[in-house]
Design a protein around this nucleic acid. Structure first.
Length: 511
RNA sequence: GUGGGCGUAGCUCAAUGGCAGAGCACCUGAUUGUGGUUCAGGCGGUUGAGGGUUCGAGCCCCUUCGUCCACCCCA
């Protein structure tokens, strides 16, 4: 018979084998205990949700990253994170709870992205949500929890980067088209990395009308200025109708093989798009000024205030950040470093106020993000709940595992004892001994392969057992067992009544 | 979405276009009641799949699938 074809795991999905899995569980347990001690209550939520939940949170553009499918005429998705589910559950079931409500969670999440190092399609997150509390104290509590959690795991070296958005609001107030606004938001990081010329080139690829050097002067001819301004004020349909009527009243026919409607659309597009140029120019200038606003908190804040004053922007976001930093300092000194980044927008539009990320050096030296979070005060009402402040964060468990210093990796619980029955008649006694030892909380395995003492001891050695208990005819005849300490190779015949104590001694000595 | 690398034994990998191999692991025995070593032997493959070129393909060409890495983006 030909061997059946092997079935391998799906792409981006990994089997966590014994050691890796045990380590992950240890990390989860330590973080759960950490959060528990800060008053966070556990909550578990479904792995699948209505896709609508995530569309509300992220918007339709991000749905490509979801495991999203229709099933029996319903559109459902695997959760890409747990926070949305927690807030949904809050709206559904917990609105009567006393506030603030502190919740913690852990579980698998799924994202349909191309897998690469430290990035899989299924991974594990643990995190916390703080509902019904806004302001600096709440923000600082979360920042502190996220950092001290790392320290509890033995991670001393990390970098906390806190941001408030100084970009999104600015661009929004400029009145840029949605597509261009999104482009600029997404390219703040590129502006930093590759400079303005790079971003301008990318911008012109999606918006060829943009002239990098264009200033407001040449866009506006003096005549017809009022008419153009008027057209810009109208809705698309109104403007289209107005131009159409205008042309008809002058008895102008469009002499081309294109439809009149198309020509008008094109004309309107031109009239309206031209005004994007000066706005883009202003946006790029502002972004260039924002670019260096990252680094040590006090100094960066001071420079940010100067910029905000120059552009006559509200200072309240910066005030809030300053209060949060002060509140964080009240928690005591952190082991890692703290930075501020005022260009940070986590590519996501649901954040309001503080956002943060934590980076660690991974085992191969490169820096990876191990934690992220922020405040999303509008989210609960978007999900049909009341107007309630909400903030939270999540750690990436697998990434934490790779950032754990070797010294902090927790030792795996080893097998304590292997019991080796020598013949079929010895098994009943062997199982009885195993039960007695397990009552002392020992990890005990009975060798069932029946391949003799030599193989049994070899197996015990390879399994890392501290002791072997040999039970054969001669031992049974006297109500004893042979107890062998694997490391020292010392072996004694021990009465069964003494056996548990003697085994415990050996296991303790193993250290 | 874009660009690379790699698919050969359970694992890590060899093999000028010319008999598909090694190490590790596994199994048996030397040692029938004594485990880190040693020695002797053994099991193990449609070389990811399909097509093409060739007297001959693991190797060259095409297609496809899988996988890893990087970019984009994200935790």
């Amino acid at each position: 018979m030909a061997a059946a074809k092997k079935i391998s795991a799906l792409r981006g999905m990994r089997d966590a084998l014994s050691e890796e899995y045990a380590q992950r569980r240890d990390i989860e347990a330590a973080l759960a205990q950490h959060l528990r001690q800060h008053g966070y209550a556990p909550i578990d939520v479904p792995i699948v949700e209505q896709t609508e939940l995530y569309l509300r949170k992220y918007g339709e553009e991000y749905s490509a990253r979801l495991y999203d499918f229709s099933f029996k005429n319903r559109r459902i998705a695997l959760r890409p994170e747990l926070s949305a589910s927690i807030l949904r559950a809050y709206v559904d079931k917990l609105q009567g709870e006393p506030l603030p409500l502190r919740l913690r969670y852990a579980g698998a999440v799924f994202r349909y992205e191309k897998p690469q190092q430290y990035r899989w399609r299924q991974f594990t997150q643990a995190g916390a949500e703080l509902l019904g509390a806004g302001g600096a104290r709440a923000d600082a509590e979360l920042l502190y929890l996220a950092c001290s959690g790392l320290e509890r795991l033995g991670i001393r070296e990390y970098r906390l980067v806190i941001g408030v958005d100084m970009l999104g609001g600015f661009l929004h107030n400029l009145g840029l088209r949605f597509q261009l606004l999104n482009f600029l938001l997404r390219n703040m990081e590129n502006l930093r990395k590759y400079g303005e010329a790079h971003v301008v080139a990318a911008l012109q690829a999606i918006y060829p009308q943009f002239q990098a050097e264009a200033r407001e002067a040449l866009a506006e001819p003096a005549t017809g200025k009022q008419l153009i301004a008027l057209l810009r004020e109208m809705s698309d349909a109104e403007a289209h109708q107005a131009v159409s009527e205008f042309l008809n009243s002058l008895n102008i026919r469009v002499a081309s093989n294109r439809d009149e409607g198309e020509v008008i659309d094109r004309l309107l597009y031109k009239i309206r798009e031209d005004q994007q140029n000066p706005k883009l120019r202003r946006a790029l200038d502002y972004m260039a000024r924002l670019k260096p606003l990252a680094g040590a908190p006090a100094e960066t804040l001071a420079r940010a205030r100067a910029l905000a004053a120059e552009y006559q922007l509200e200072q309240c976001a910066l005030d809030a950040l300053e209060r949060t930093l002060a509140a964080l300092a009240d928690h005591g000194k952190l082991g890692g470093s703290v930075e501020v980044d005022l260009g940070m927008n986590r590519g996501l539009n649901y954040y309001s106020g503080m956002v943060f990320e934590i980076y660690c050096p991974s085992e191969n030296g490169a820096e990876i993000q191990v934690c992220g979070g922020g405040r999303y005060d509008a989210l609960i009402s978007n999900l049909g709940g009341g107007d309630l402040p909400a903030a939270g964060f999540a750690w990436g468990i697998e990434r934490l595992a790779s950032a754990l210093p070797a010294a902090a990796r927790l030792a795996q619980p080893a097998l304590d004892v292997v019991i080796i029955p020598l013949a079929a008649a010895d098994f009943a006694a062997a199982y009885q001994i195993a039960r007695d030892l397990r009552e002392r909380d020992l990890c005990v395995e009975v060798s069932i392969d029946g391949r003799g003492l030599r193989r049994g001891l070899r197996a015990a050695h390879r399994r890392g057992a501290a002791a072997a208990v040999i039970i054969g005819e001669s031992e049974r005849a006297r109500g004893t067992a042979s107890l062998r300490a694997m490391r020292s190779r010392e072996q004694h015949i021990v009465p069964l009544s003494d056996l548990p104590n003697r085994v415990e001694d050996i296991c303790r000595a193993r250290g």
